[in-house]
Simulated assay, not measured.
Amino acid sequence: MSADLKTINFNAVVNDKKVTLFTIRNSHGLEAKFSNYGQHLIALWVPDKEGNREDVVLGCPSIDDYMDEKAQYLGAFIGRYANRISEAAFFIDNKMYRLQKNNGKNHLHGGYFGFNKKVWEAEQIDDSKIQFNGISMDGDQGYPGNLETRVEYMLTEENALQIDYWARTDKPTHVNFTNHSFFNLTGNTKNNILSHELIINADFYHPVNQNLIPKGLAQKVKGTPFDFRTGKRIGKDILSEHDQIALCKGYDHNFVLGKEPKGKQGLRFAAKVTEPESGRVLDVFTTEPGLQLFTGNYFDGSLKGKYGKGYDPYIGFCLETQHFPNSPNRPDFPKTLLHPDREYRSTTMYRFSTSAVSDKDKSKH
């Protein structure tokens, strides 16, 4: 364990509940640490092509840091609704429900006290698996229904961090969960993520308005900075004059994932990231129809990470599997309404491997 990551720094009492650090690992060197506060993924150690283990997610050295607004989403479980809901309101059966406005006039990531700020009941299933449980009460942040929630994290022997989400409600309500980890495959945030090679399995993306709410119809990625179909460096077009890139100072957009190809478990392939120097490779598979690419555009160096480094723009990237932003107000989007006679189930897998990358390949893009 890094000298900057001490278990004692994650022991606390929050809202009269005990908070501590939990560890899972597999037999191939993967190791993850979670807090039951917000289910934050604090650290994830992954070997490089030489077998050297390093931490590939952004995080902070103490639980107190996660109480800061700047760090509140780092590696967190996001709910009840990931991403934005326009005007912080939606209708169910002709009744309007008003949500917490925590992003200007809009609702973001479940509200001021979303799932990222809740203390969850933890059950360590075995060395490689942990489960978090809790109930979001009727009216929580404006949402209807008592929502019973369970999330299971497992480090598989195929070197994947598998996340299985489950929920059940007693009233119709909207549900859209995700994990908000920022990855940096250089390890220990040695460099930014602009040289990472990224593939996204998407022909379309959603342009956004000034409030970062999808506007109009999905647009083709072809011929735009959003075309990652065959792979390119994340930094290749991140300073483009394209109006959507300029608006967000980089990428903060939802991609419409293709239904094929699928992995061994029947999950759709979402993305692939390769870091040339370390050789680390990340493949993402999911049941979700969308993927939010966020490149940490708004970090300003004031948030200090686990390794004593201030987090600057583009120090990490998010690949947030999700239903589309503002779906409750967009009848043309895949539905997010959960009924009492149904169960919400979703799975996302972040699978790691290594690949030797030649100098010729490095200069390809």
Rank of each mutant, 00 (worst) to 15 (best):
D55R: 03
G235F: 04
A218F: 08
E158D: 13
K362R: 13
T321W: 01
T189K: 01
A12F: 04
N179K: 14
M67E: 15
D68E: 07
Q162I: 15
Q292Y: 06
Y165T: 10
D138W: 15
H28T: 00
N211Y: 10
S302E: 13
D126I: 13
L293Y: 07
K364G: 01
Y314K: 04
G139M: 02
I238A: 02
M1I: 14
K264V: 15
N133A: 03
K117I: 04
Q141N: 07
Y344R: 05
V208D: 03
K222I: 02
T287R: 12
T230H: 05
H253T: 00
F132D: 09
G223P: 11
Q141M: 04
G145M: 09
D126C: 14
L30K: 15
L74S: 02
S240C: 11
P340S: 08
V357I: 13
Y311C: 05
I63G: 00
I78T: 10
L319M: 08
K6N: 15
V208Q: 12
S128V: 06
D68R: 10
N9F: 03
E69R: 14
D300Y: 00
E260H: 08
F269D: 03
K101P: 13
P172Q: 00
P214R: 00
N106S: 12
L257K: 09
N103S: 11
P261H: 07
K304Q: 05
S363M: 10
G263I: 04
E320D: 02
P325L: 07
T186W: 13
D283M: 09
L161G: 08
H107Q: 07
L185I: 01
F226S: 04
Y344S: 03
H253E: 13
D359F: 14
T189F: 01
G59C: 03
N103Q: 04
K101H: 06
N15G: 09
K272S: 14
N52C: 11
N188P: 02
I125F: 14
P276A: 00
R229L: 02
R233T: 05
N179P: 00
V56Y: 07
I125N: 06
L194N: 13
D48K: 06
Y350M: 06
P289Q: 10
Y311F: 14
H107E: 06
E123G: 10
D93A: 10
N9A: 10
L267S: 04
K364M: 06
E121N: 12
S302A: 08
P334N: 12
S195V: 12
G75F: 06
K17V: 03
L291F: 01
D48L: 11
F90Y: 13
D93T: 02
K70Y: 00
T224G: 04
P261M: 10
Q210W: 14
F182E: 06
L58C: 09
A167H: 00
L212W: 08
K249M: 09
A167N: 01
S27T: 11
G305V: 05
A356Q: 05
T295V: 09
L291H: 07
V273S: 02
G29H: 11
N94C: 09
Y153K: 12
E320V: 01
T173I: 06
V151K: 01
N211W: 12
T149A: 09
F77S: 04
E277V: 14
V256Q: 14
I213Y: 04
I193S: 03
D64S: 12
